[in-house]
């Protein structure tokens, strides 16, 4: 059974890689198996990890009627399947939007804007000259990047220059991101190759 599992896993891995040559039935079969299995998995996990213990059990077993509220709001998600009632889908949408947006606004100020602004008030005296230079660069980089995203004036003259410097900072940071992402991708490939060589073929 274990051995069979490794074989299934390996063959499916190769089926996906066949896409590199070109789109083909093996790839498509693997693709659809994946979607089907994942969707089935999601349903099961959602039910056992959350929906049953947190919604239905309190309602059905313990008879706590309060839990009817989220269930009814949630069921309205299915309203579009009854054309006459399809507008009711707006209730769960607006309910979730209202709550998530409100929490989002306060949290982004508390967790992002204020601490990040504070972290930009960097010291420029009493530290190593190179640290002063670095701190100056950070402050300038933040300000000039903000200027690039200033849409109310055409980028000419001093403003244009500042926006240009902003772009330079961004390009360096994009370069860094690119480098890191390359790393990520290669790591994933290494993971799969390791699996094939180690678990399947047993060479390493």
């Amino acid at each position: 059974m274990e051995v069979l599992g490794v074989w299934i896993a390996s063959l499916l891995t190769l089926a996906i890689y066949s896409f590199l040559y070109k789109d083909n039935p093996f790839y498509k079969v693997a693709e659809h198996i994946f979607v089907g299995i994942s969707a089935g998995y999601w349903a099961v996990i959602l039910w056992f990890d959350f929906a049953w213990p947190n919604l239905f059990e309190p309602l059905i077993v313990k008879g706590n009627m309060v839990y009817l509220i989220p269930i009814i709001i949630g069921l309205l998600m299915f309203a579009p399947f009854i054309p006459k009632l399809s507008w009711l889908v707006r209730i769960p949408l607006t309910f979730t939007m209202g709550i998530s947006m409100a929490l989002f606004i306060t949290q982004i100020i508390q967790g992002d804007i204020l601490p990040q602004l504070q972290a930009t008030f960097l010291p420029l005296a009493g530290i190593h000259p190179f640290k002063v230079f670095s701190n100056l660069l950070i402050i300038a980089g933040v300000v000039f990047t903000l200027i690039y995203f200033y849409f109310s004036k055409e980028h000419k003259g001093t403003l244009g220059f500042a926006a240009k410097v902003g772009i330079w900072f961004m390009m360096v940071s994009f370069g860094a991101s690119f480098g890191y992402t390359v790393m990520a991708r290669i790591s994933l490939l290494i993971g799969r190759v390791y699996f094939l060589l180690h678990n399947w073929l047993g060479i390493i």
């Binding site: 508390q110 967790g111 204020l114 601490p115 602004l117 504070q118 930009t120 008030f121 960097l122 010291p123 420029l124 005296a125 402050i139 933040v142 300000v143 903000l146 200027i147």
Partner: peptide, 25 residues
Amino acid sequence: FILVIVIGVITRLLGNQYFYNLFKT
């Protein structure tokens, strides 16, 4: 934001922590 950053940097340079502490969350 730009203004706040400039003020924050200058006040800190002048040794004043009051403005800096306003941003504590």
